[in-house]
């Protein structure tokens, strides 16, 4: 059975988010992998309260492999940032390349929205 993760974008700044334990985190690595389709659907349903509160938009589930790598290239790129190789000009290598380390939220797995 396919494993799935849940993602969305934060409304106010567009940042990519992943679901974990009833809230959101900013990296794929911290996100929650659902082995059970029913659990994935439950997460998607729970996430709708964040949509209703205008905190996130565009919630959807995507498939990941047993090692947690997304099946589709699209989701790999979404998680890692643009794959543009050896950019001469661009300074947007993605999340790993982001210079400032985000402040640690009170609940380490729940980013304030």
């Amino acid at each position: 059975m396919a494993r799935q993760m849940l993602t969305a974008n934060r409304l106010r700044d567009g940042a990519v988010l992943y679901w974990r334990g009833g809230g959101w985190v900013e990296t794929l690595a911290e996100g929650e992998v659902h082995a059970d389709p029913a659990a994935a659907d439950a997460a998607l349903a729970a996430a709708q309260s964040f949509v209703a509160r205008n905190e996130v938009v565009g919630t959807y589930l995507f498939d990941v492999q047993p090692d947690g790598t997304p099946v589709k290239e699209r989701e790999i790129i979404r998680a890692r940032g643009p794959s543009v190789r050896d950019p001469i000009l661009r300074k947007d290598g993605g999340k790993q390349a982001a210079a400032p380390v985000p402040p640690v939220p009170e609940d380490p797995y729940n980013v304030s929205i």
């Binding site: 106010r12 700044d13 949509v51 205008n54 938009v57 790129i77 979404r78 940032g81």
Partner: peptide, 27 residues
């Protein structure tokens, strides 16, 4: 939009008409 008076479905055509997309990573 931020207060929820506009839903995303309603806001989307309005923001697009002003050149604002939500793309793979960000706006």
């Amino acid at each position: 939009r931020l207060t929820g008076e506009l839903t995303e479905d309603q806001f989307k055509p309005l923001r697009l008409m002003n050149g604002l997309y939500l793309q793979l990573h960000a706006y």
